[in-house]
Write a protein that binds this DNA or RNA. Structure first.
Length: 482
RNA sequence: GGCGGCAUAGCCAAGUGGUAAGGCAGCGGUCUGCAAAACCGUUAUACACCGGUUCGAAUCCGGUUGCCGCCUCCA
């Protein structure tokens, strides 16, 4: 029994989450159509649902998570044609890339990751049912869904057929009975991928693959269906029509949609040429910085991708690692199992409120500040109570990290790695730096502050920052400025 | 034209009717030879505007303005 509340697009309200089968959750999320590289918008959707699934598991649900690849579609066919390769080759290439990027982003694999082309049989079965039940009709080798036969059509997106017709620019297809009818099965054209069907050779339309695959793996009626907000209409609306039309019962309980990513205040779009591809982002920023950035906003709000936000997110993640490092230094790096403490409880309260990761992250920073102060006060020898508090917080922090998909590295390694990257990028010679620091230490011993400061300036010009500590001098590479 | 969303300090951002989390930047301080790092303090008579409901609203209702999204492939 939890207190999890989830905003449901279908009802436009936050509702208490009750799974259909106690203790189990079935969730389907629309994955990419694999015709091009994944952009930051895909990253948001995938990361958001990754965290949702991780959280559901953390609070004890057994989750079956299905995320599909749509690997047959007009865009894929067109792109493959342009590149002179097969659709299969194109989609395999992008699926491979998708996995590489998702691994880099520390996104867990879904339980099942089906491809549309592996489930043509199920797709055909759904269409046959729809034809049988009078929801679909064949016309000239194509099969269409007749929207007027489904009286709930529009219930997800809050539209009504008669209202839409006025202003919508819908491609006119003479074969359709209603302009909003959509294709379930497309008759084959030469050179396109095709499969046999009761209506001749052809291929599935967009939408139907998700109805078929979700039912195949999660049953007629399942708990959560997710995706980007842009999928509400027509994609998810049509899925509901198909699935409920074919099966005659409620399809999904909770519809969950994430907001868009903007770039420097502008909508990301091909015409503006501001499509940011994950690959490129990861060249410039740490993957955990990207996760923190994405999760610092509520998942339903739009989020604006800017360099400044990314730098701040990167600083934030470093601050947490530095804090962990400090506790490890004080208490030793052991990761003893600890029961959940107050930090975790508070985090769950935030997550229970429609997966409020932004509040959860705020909580983490607040705790970091409080315990940094505590460590300032207690010095080298923490009392038993303080020690217990630090150990418990560290354990909770790891638990939270597991849900948010961050803090995956040991702090020492994280900083080493970061240093190594910067050193390489800036072409800095460690031996030179250390020699100069030794020179400076000598100067400082002789209280030759002018010389010491001169060396510090010299190093600073090389982007080396000096930190004089009790045990000696630390140094690190300063961050890139742009 | 239809449907929906958003408007909180210099910037980003949370906010579940009871009196504004968090982060960044800034300022003052502790520490330091001076710095850096870390920490402390400080930064919204106030949540676009106007009304209303309420003992009480950023939070509910109505209206106004501005921005955005969807209605066409899109995470």
């Amino acid at each position: 029994m939890t207190n999890l509340k989830i905003y449901n697009t279908l009802t436009r309200k936050k509702e208490t989450f009750e799974p259909i089968k106690p203790g189990k959750v079935g969730i389907y999320v629309c994955g990419p159509t694999v015709y091009d590289a994944c952009h930051i918008g895909h990253a948001r959707s995938v990361v958001v649902f990754d965290v949702i699934v991780r959280y559901l598991r953390a609070i004890g649900y057994e989750v079956t998570y299905v995320r599909n690849f749509t690997d047959v579609d007009d865009k894929i066919i067109n792109r493959a044609g342009e590149l002179g390769i097969s659709t299969q080759e194109l989609s395999e290439r992008h699926i491979k890339e998708f996995y590489e990027e998702m691994d880099a982003l520390n996104v867990e694999r879904a339980t099942i990751e089906p491809k549309a082309t592996d489930h043509i049989e199920e797709i055909i079965e759904v269409i046959e049912r729809l034809v049988l039940r009078g929801h679909a009709y064949e016309a000239g080798g194509d099969v269409f869904f007749a929207v007027e036969t489904f009286k709930d059509y529009g219930k997800l997106s809050g539209r009504r057929l008669d209202e839409m017709q006025a202003g919508a620019r819908v491609e006119i297809d003479e074969k359709k009975r209603n302009p909003f009818d959509f294709v379930l099965w497309k008759g084959a054209k030469p050179g396109e991928p095709m499969w046999d069907s009761p209506w001749g050779k052809g291929r599935p339309g967009w939408h139907i693959e998700c109805s078929a695959m979700s039912t195949r793996f999660l049953g007629y009626h399942f708990d959560i269906h997710g995706g980007g907000k842009d999928l509400i209409f027509p994609h998810h609306e049509n899925e509901i029509a198909q699935s409920e039309g074919a099966l005659g019962e409620q399809f999904v309980n909770f519809w969950v949609h994430n907001g868009f990513v903007k770039i420097d205040q502008e909508k990301m779009s091909k015409s503006l040429g501001n499509f940011l591809v994950i690959k490129e982002i990861l060249k410039q920023y740490h993957p955990e910085a990207l996760r923190v950035f994405l999760l610092s906003n509520h998942y339903r709000s739009p989020v604006d991708f800017t360099h400044q936000s990314m730098v701040e997110a990167g600083d934030g993640i470093e601050k947490i690692y530095a804090f962990q490092q400090r506790i490890d230094g004080l208490l030793g790096p052991s990761r003893n199992e600890q029961g959940p403490g107050p930090l975790w409880e508070n985090f769950c309260r935030a997550m229970d409120d429609d997966f409020n990761t932004a509040r959860g992250i705020g909580l983490v920073f607040e705790t970091v500040r409080q315990l940094n102060r505590l460590m300032d006060d207690i010095g080298e020898r923490p009392g038993q109570q303080d020690q217990a508090r630090l150990v418990s917080t560290r354990a909770d922090l790891m638990r939270i990290g597991d849900v948010l998909g961050i803090l995956t590295e040991a702090p020492d390694k994280f900083f080493e790695q970061k240093q190594a990257d910067l050193l390489e990028r800036k072409g800095i010679d460690i031996a030179v730096v250390e020699r100069r620091i030794a020179d400076r230490a000598r100067a400082r011993e002789q209280k030759d502050w002018a010389e010491a400061d001169r060396i510090r300036d010299e190093l600073s010009a090389m982007d080396i920052l000096i930190e004089d500590r009790a045990g000696g001098t630390n140094w690190k590479v300063s961050k890139p400025k742009d």
